[in-house]
């Protein structure tokens, strides 16, 4: 039952992706209410899935990699719905939906929805630590999306090859501003998640701690580079994309290490 909800949610996001591709091909790429609504519906279905799963588990549904990926996809959609309109970056939906589809397809297609071999005693600190860290990942994912949009727009301006999307993407300063705010938002949440990890009161493998701190340092360095103007905006945008790819692969490692611990 709960997997069906997730499949329907994935179909909604897929509809947003298909609509975007069709718009691209017809060269009438523009802000679309359809994309926003399908993402919103997908978000509702994801929330229903997480709620059903959470009730069944009696805890926050982030007990295995499958649930972590779904929770991450849900966080991305949540932050997009919160900031998409605020920063007038509705077009971000067209870039966000494929990322969510990718995460949920990986979750659905790989055999990673394995229940824990042993029950875990409820630990509010652990749940807070894990959930806030994943929501931080959601912000980093959106920063990656804004960074990708920046790179697309910047490349068109540099090469003088203006595609249809050029006229619909926001100006570079707006994208850069959204990117840095999302980085800050994610960094603050991630810091809170990291600090709360020390109150979990359970033995944690040192590799997991080291990887988590490595991600924190990586994003801290990007923000430092931004404010000390060590790097041009284009490099910050590139780093946002690269850092999220690294963080996502480390998340996998953290989970892997966590399960073996």
């Amino acid at each position: 039952m709960d997997r069906q909800l997730l499949i329907f949610a994935t179909v909604c996001y897929l509809a947003a992706v298909i609509r975007t591709v069709i718009s691209f091909r017809a060269r009438i790429f523009r802000r679309s209410r359809f994309v926003f609504l399908t993402i919103a519906l997908g978000f509702v279905l994801q929330t229903a899935f997480l709620s059903v799963r959470g009730h069944a588990l009696g805890s926050c549904p982030i007990t295995n990699l499958f649930e972590v990926l779904v929770f991450l996809a849900w966080s991305i959609a949540l932050i997009y719905l919160l900031i998409g309109t605020t920063y007038r970056l509705s077009l971000m939906g067209a870039f966000t939906a494929p990322l969510v589809v990718l995460l949920q397809l990986v979750a659905l297609l790989l055999p990673i929805d394995t229940p824990r071999a042993f029950p875990i005693a409820p630990n509010p600190w652990l749940e807070f630590h894990a959930s806030i860290s994943i929501i931080a990942y959601g912000a980093f994912a959106l920063a990656c999306v804004a960074g990708a949009m920046y790179l697309v727009q910047e490349r068109q301006l540099k090469t003088h090859q203006l595609r249809s999307i050029f006229y619909h993407l926001p100006p570079l300063p707006n994208l850069f501003s959204a990117m840095t705010r999302l980085l800050w938002f994610g960094f603050i949440l991630y810091s809170a998640g990291l600090i709360s990890g020390f109150f979990v009161n359970e033995p944690l493998p040192w590799t997991k701690i080291a990887l988590a701190i490595a991600i924190w340092i990586l994003y801290g360095a990007i923000l430092q580079g931004r404010y000390l103007r060590w790097m041009a905006p284009r490099r910050i945008a590139t780093l946002c994309v690269v850092a999220f790819a690294v963080a996502l692969s480390l998340l996998w490692s953290i989970e892997f290490v966590g399960h073996r611990a």
Partner: peptide, 22 residues
């Protein structure tokens, strides 16, 4: 898309400037 895109040197410059500077 009949109104899409700038069609004079001046309007091209304005469109580009708005994408670069907001």
């Amino acid at each position: 898309q009949i109104t899409r895109g700038p069609v004079s040197v001046g309007s091209v410059a304005v469109d580009l400037a708005e994408k670069i500077f907001g």
